[in-house]
Design a protein around this nucleic acid. Structure first.
Lengths: 338, 338
DNA sequence: TTGTAGGCGTTATCAA
DNA sequence: TTGATAACGCCTACAA
């Protein structure tokens, strides 16, 4: 039996309308009644029922953050920033995992779950956009894409320049004197724009340096987890002509790759240099520490949340594309020192 | 203008009551009308409004998972399992970060935010329970504690045996021939039960081995992050008599400690053995890989979610205490091999 | 088996 | 400035 507006109204000898006004802080209420209402609220320990408010106003104050796996450090760090940024704007965040389940991703996007539970969706697909391209951007559910950058302007997105980032990472390896540069993280499915863009940047850097891409050195990774990097790197190291450097499409892949190098009896960076993308905290503490392309995750989160808030208040605002900055961070995994 | 029950009823030429019955799947509905209703639902693409349903039934189908920081790998892995376990029971999960903000933790617990947004709370405090002890377990908000184990039976909790786990880790170091065993992770505030219990287990293992605890070797860690482990271990290594082993109260602390050992020009495990608690995935890939006490996180998550579901359906069910199993996992950081 | 009506707790409209 | 009252969309007695 929770306390309702009516209870407070009765206690304060006013109408519900007046209490509602006091709670909202909005309209003009005489100081005298206001104080009386406040007292009643305190005394009864009244808390507004958000669900009822939502039913009435159509707004829940909740955003959904959809990621493939929350325990992938990059997504966890992103979630942290998103939750904080959302809190500043008065939103709470619901985290959904799609777990590489395309059907689930699609359902979340088409709004099969859009049952008025949240006001907007921040979607960080590892993948999928192919499906998105065919979807009608439903005005009823504000959506901002994170990390994808290959659309036709019908959706908001916030992402880095993937081609440039991959280029920078590869060029860094080449500048350190490496000539057989491998890459881990391609996807068989051409729909996945992020890996495709990164491969593009990788190949562009090779060309600029006059190096010939070797098909053998381009490796897929089913997911972007440590085990995938481990497996791919292990395979690379058994080649007749193994690579002297590996560019991984995520830091987590790089963690697996580094371990694979050790297990093969080689050294990082002396025998094989390794670089990743994301700049997760883990990379500062590994031995050797991991060179990487750093994404400005707080910036991305703040932009995305700000964007969705704007779209919520004005659904017809035109879609925009925000490019987040990235910087190359050189650490031990690409710097021969010892 | 979303589709409502009434729209469907009109389209199918039946009453809302009948449509509701079909949606719920419950009551007896003639096959003929049922099909007609189904068709109408499909055609109009009707989705029940969860908010309205909630207002009526008092249930949201949402659980809150409260953790200090979602980007601490252990909490991220826990969140993953909780989200999955909750989904199996038809619940969605809202992740809240307290960020070491005691006031915020307290507000969440006292239910200042208990505005009917979720049906229950899974609370994994890094800390606090002191406050909890004084609180009235509010029957209005089902609560399950994760990782804490020191209460008087008024709350459900799911946790490992912290004393035993710490004892096992310490005993393992001693069994490997170490005699100056340090510990990182104590808290100045005695209210924090988990660190206190772990210190207890640590000291017990020392005593059993006939070793005298050295106050110098017992180090606090403000939070349980890599940087804290790094700082504490660095300080330990400058002692006149540095330790030959370090037991860290979390794997993340251990990651920082290992890095500190390297930066001090020493080796793990040859000069200093390191062991943690949690068994996060990261520890399998570091170099050297990290020995640890493995928690059965999927078990913990499933127990917790099951428990909260039970308490939601019967608020008066007596509080129980679930002890999750733990196992020692020996890896390279405590095994001299090379 | 199905229809009608009332209420969950808010906010918003319309008077007063 | 404040009061009464109608929605918001759903579920569920109570009837039929």
């Amino acid at each position: 039996m929770p306390i309702t507006l009516r209870d407070v109204a009765e206690q304060a000898q006013v109408s519900v309308r007046t209490v509602s006004n006091v709670v909202a802080g909005y309209t003009h209420v005489s100081e005298r009644t206001r104080l009386r209402v406040q007292a009643a609220i305190e005394e009864l320990d009244y808390r507004p029922n958000l669900v009822a408010r939502t039913l009435r106003t159509g707004r829940t104050g909740v955003l959904a953050l959809v990621v493939p796996e929350i325990d992938v450090p990059y997504f966890a760090e992103l979630a942290r920033e998103v939750i904080d940024a959302a809190a500043e704007l008065g939103y709470r965040v619901m985290v959904d995992q799609t777990g590489h389940d395309h059907e689930r991703e699609r359902r979340l996007l088409t709004g099969a779950d859009r049952t008025m539970l949240f006001d907007g969706v921040l979607f960080s697909p590892l993948v999928t956009p192919g499906e998105l391209a065919e979807m009608e951007p439903s005005r009823s559910m504000p959506l901002v894409l994170l990390g994808e950058h290959d659309f036709d302007g019908r959706y908001d997105h916030v992402a880095i320049d993937n081609v440039q980032a991959a280029h920078d990472a590869t060029a860094h390896l080449i500048a350190r004197g490496r000539t057989r540069v491998a890459a881990i993280g391609t996807q068989p499915d051409e729909d996945y724009t992020t890996p495709r863009q990164r491969t593009l940047g990788y190949e562009r850097a090779l060309h600029e340096a006059g190096l010939t891409p070797d098909r053998e050195l381009l490796r897929p990774a089913a997911h972007y987890r440590r085990a995938d990097g481990y497996d791919a790197a292990s395979a690379l190291l058994t080649l007749p002509q193994p690579p002297d450097a590996i560019f991984c499409y995520s830091d987590l892949l790089a963690m697996g790759a580094m371990r694979a190098v050790f297990d093969a009896g080689a050294r990082v960076p002396d025998d094989v240099a390794v670089i990743g993308i994301d700049d997760i905290e883990e990379g500062q503490y590994t031995h050797p520490s991991l060179s990487t392309v750093s994404l400005d995750t707080p910036f991305i989160a703040r932009q995305a949340v700000g964007r969705i808030a704007e779209r919520i208040s004005d659904p017809d605002t035109p879609a925009i594309e925000v490019t987040a900055p990235h910087t190359l961070v050189e650490r031990e995994s690409t710097t021969s020192t010892t």
